[in-house]
């Protein structure tokens, strides 16, 4: 018997993002759809940034996770439209990012506060960070640098 789509979503929610392992690929909002095509499971995935090297790893991780649950025929479909936006990050994902030390994205254009000491006295160091999706900020109170998840 084929697992239900709800079951698949639940399993996908246990596949961690390779760069930010505290959130899942579902939290990240990059899984756009799950459907059975006969006995083949089709998972539609959208890239975060068009050149993000994690995209290939994510597809492989999804295939592996499905195989581990007995689904051998998996097709990953890359879907670029509509383009990914940080609006698709789940509330659960945002809270986990903050706990992990990465300030979640805000439409206002900067972090609400330092994820470590919660001070609002923060400033940008660089518009780009360790991965395409992050910028570098620092806290002027606890003096720690931190990552900010860019809003796009």
């Amino acid at each position: 018997m084929k697992p239900s789509e709800a079951q698949i979503w639940d399993w996908l929610d246990q596949v961690p993002d390779p760069e930010i392992p505290v959130i899942s690929v579902v939290d990240l909002g990059i899984v756009r759809g799950v459907a059975w095509d006969g006995d083949t499971l089709e998972v539609a995935v959208t890239p975060t940034y068009s050149g993000c090297p994690a995209t290939g790893v994510i597809s492989m991780d999804i295939e592996t996770a499905m195989r581990d649950r007995g689904i051998n025929a998996v097709r990953i479909k890359t879907q670029i439209s509509p383009p990914w936006t940080t609006d698709w990050l789940s509330e659960k994902g945002r809270a986990k990012l903050m706990d992990y030390g990465i300030a979640p994205p805000r439409p206002a254009g900067g972090p609400e506060c330092c994820p470590l000491c919660k001070s609002t006295n923060v400033g940008e160091i660089s518009r780009f960070g360790s991965t395409p999706c992050k910028a570098q900020w620092r806290c002027a109170d606890c003096l720690e640098p931190f990552d900010y998840f860019k809003c796009i």
């Binding site: 890239p47 940034y49 068009s50 050149g51 993000c52 660089s126 780009f128 960070g129 395409p132």
Partner: peptide, 20 residues
């Protein structure tokens, strides 16, 4: 270092767009 990372990220975006 920050500029190095910024340039590498810009290059990455452009190469990703190239693939499309």
């Amino acid at each position: 270092l920050e500029e190095d990372i910024a340039l590498a990220n810009t290059a990455l975006d452009l190469i990703g767009q190239t693939q499309m």
